[in-house]
Measured scan of single mutants.
Amino acid sequence: EVTIKANLIFANGSTQTAEFKGTFEKATSEAYAYADTLKKDNGEYTVDVADKGYTLNIKFAG
């Protein structure tokens, strides 16, 4: 089991951190699915992958 950390960075400057656990593939998939649910209210997003994929910096356009 691994932990994927998602740093969520919103257009208004606020930030939030979420963690997803499971296999690497499952946790990564859940992180992207979570970002997709936030897209409606926060706009499109870009992802900067860090720490060999264990950290995702997800920035929303607003």
Rank of each mutant, 00 (worst) to 15 (best):
G43D: 03
K21L: 14
F20S: 01
D36E: 15
G13D: 07
K52V: 07
K21P: 04
K40V: 07
S29H: 15
E30D: 14
N57W: 13
E1C: 05
G43E: 04
V47T: 09
F60R: 00
Y34Q: 03
T37F: 08
N42S: 10
D36R: 05
V49F: 12
A11I: 11
K39S: 06
F10M: 10
S14C: 05
A33I: 11
N7E: 06
D41Y: 09
T46P: 00
T17N: 12
K21Y: 15
T15V: 11
G22Q: 03
E44W: 08
K40H: 14
T15N: 11
Y54K: 07
F10Y: 15
Y34N: 03
A18H: 14
D41M: 13
L56H: 02
A50N: 08
I9T: 11
F60V: 01
Y45C: 02
A18L: 14
T46E: 10
T15K: 12
V49R: 07
A6L: 11
V2K: 05
L56Y: 04
E25M: 08
N12A: 06
G43N: 03
A18D: 05
K5Q: 10
N42P: 01
I58N: 00
A33D: 06
L8K: 00
L38P: 00
G62F: 10
T15C: 05
T23R: 04
T15W: 15
G53K: 03
G13C: 06
N12V: 05
A27C: 04
E19H: 13
A31T: 05
D48T: 12
S14N: 11
A31D: 00
I58F: 15
V49M: 12
S29G: 13
Y45V: 02
K5E: 06
K21H: 15
T23F: 08
A33E: 13
K26V: 13
G53P: 04
T3A: 07
F20P: 00
N57T: 13
I4S: 00
K52F: 11
Y32R: 08
K26E: 15
K52D: 09
F10K: 04
F10R: 03
S14P: 09
G62E: 07
F24W: 15
V49A: 11
L38A: 04
G13K: 13
D51Y: 03
T55G: 03
D36G: 05
N7M: 11
A27E: 01
A18W: 14
K21N: 14
K39W: 05
A11N: 10
G22W: 02
V2C: 04
K5W: 14
G53N: 03
T3W: 08
N42W: 15
F24S: 04
L8M: 12
G43L: 03
F20K: 01
K5N: 11
E44D: 10
S29K: 09
D51R: 04
A31M: 05
N7I: 15
T37H: 10
G62T: 12
T3P: 04
Q16T: 13
F24T: 05
V2R: 05
A27G: 04
Y54P: 01
V49S: 10
D36M: 07
Y45L: 02
L38F: 15
G13Q: 10
G62A: 13
Y34P: 00
E1T: 07
I58E: 00
A31I: 14
Q16S: 10
N12S: 12
T3R: 10
D48Y: 13
N42C: 04
N42F: 15
A11V: 14
F20D: 00
S14A: 13
K39H: 04
F20A: 01
G53F: 03
Y34H: 09
I4V: 11
V49H: 07
N12I: 09
G53Y: 03
Y34G: 01
I58C: 03
A35S: 05
T15A: 15
L56F: 05
Y34M: 10
E25K: 05
T17P: 06
D51P: 02
T3V: 11
E19S: 13
F10A: 02
K52P: 03
G13N: 10
K59R: 14
L56Q: 01
T15M: 12
E30T: 12
T3M: 12
L38N: 03
Y54T: 06
T3I: 12
K26G: 15
K59Q: 08
E30Q: 12
K40Q: 11
F60W: 06
K52N: 13
L8A: 04
A6G: 04
T23M: 09
K39I: 08
I4H: 00
I4Y: 02
E30C: 06
Y45G: 01
F10V: 03
T3F: 08
D41I: 10
Y45F: 09
K59F: 11
K21T: 14
N7T: 13
A31P: 01
K21V: 14
G13V: 05
K5C: 05
I58D: 00
K59S: 07
E1I: 06
S29D: 11
E1S: 07
F24D: 02
D48W: 12
L56D: 00
F60C: 00
K40Y: 09
I9M: 11
A27L: 01
T55S: 07
N57L: 13
E25C: 06
E30K: 07
L56I: 12
V47E: 02
T23E: 15
E25D: 11
V49W: 10
L56W: 04
T46I: 14
K39V: 12
K59H: 13
E1A: 07
Y45E: 00
A6V: 11
A61Y: 14
T17H: 14
E19V: 14
S14M: 13
A11T: 13
T17D: 07
F10I: 04
T23C: 04
A50L: 14
E19N: 14
T23P: 09
K26Q: 14
F60P: 00
N57S: 08
I9Y: 15
E44P: 15
T28S: 10
G43S: 03
N7K: 12
G62D: 08
K52Q: 13
Y32G: 02
D51A: 06
Y54L: 13
V47N: 02
T37D: 08
T17K: 11
D48G: 14
Y54R: 06
K21R: 12
Y32N: 03
A50E: 13
G53R: 02
Y54F: 14
A50F: 09
N12M: 08
K21G: 07
Q16K: 09
S14L: 10
N57A: 05
K21E: 08
G13R: 10
A11R: 12
D41P: 05
T17M: 12
L56G: 00
Q16E: 07
G22P: 01
K39C: 04
E25Q: 06
A33Y: 07
K5G: 04
A35L: 12
A61C: 05
D48V: 14
Y34F: 12
T55D: 02
T37Q: 11
F60Y: 13
T17F: 12
E44Q: 10
D36A: 10
A18M: 15
E19Y: 14
Y34R: 04
T28F: 09
G22F: 02
T37S: 08
Y54M: 06
L56R: 01
A61E: 07
I9V: 14
S14H: 13
D36H: 07
K26S: 15
I9K: 12
E25G: 06
D36Q: 09
A27R: 00
G13W: 09
A31W: 02
T15S: 13
N7V: 14
A33F: 10
V47D: 02
D48S: 11
T3N: 06
L38H: 08
A18N: 14
S14G: 10
N42I: 06
T23I: 10
A31F: 03
K59D: 03
L8Q: 01
V47S: 06
S29V: 10
A35G: 02
K26P: 02
G22C: 02
F10W: 11
D36Y: 05
I9W: 15
S14K: 13
G62M: 09
K59N: 13
Y45M: 03
T17L: 12
V47L: 05
S14Q: 14
L56C: 01
K5S: 09
S29W: 10
Y34A: 04
N12Y: 07
E1Y: 07
T46A: 09
A27N: 01
E19W: 15
Y54I: 05
E1H: 07
G53A: 04
L38T: 02
F60L: 01
T37L: 07
E44M: 13
K26H: 15
K52H: 12
D36K: 06
S14E: 07
D36W: 04
G53E: 03
A31Y: 01
F20R: 01
A18E: 09
A33R: 13
D41Q: 14
Y45W: 12
T3E: 06
Q16L: 12
N7H: 14
L56V: 05
Y45D: 00
A35H: 00
L8F: 15
A61F: 12
G22K: 01
K59P: 01
D48R: 11
K21S: 14
I58M: 10
K39E: 06
N57Q: 09
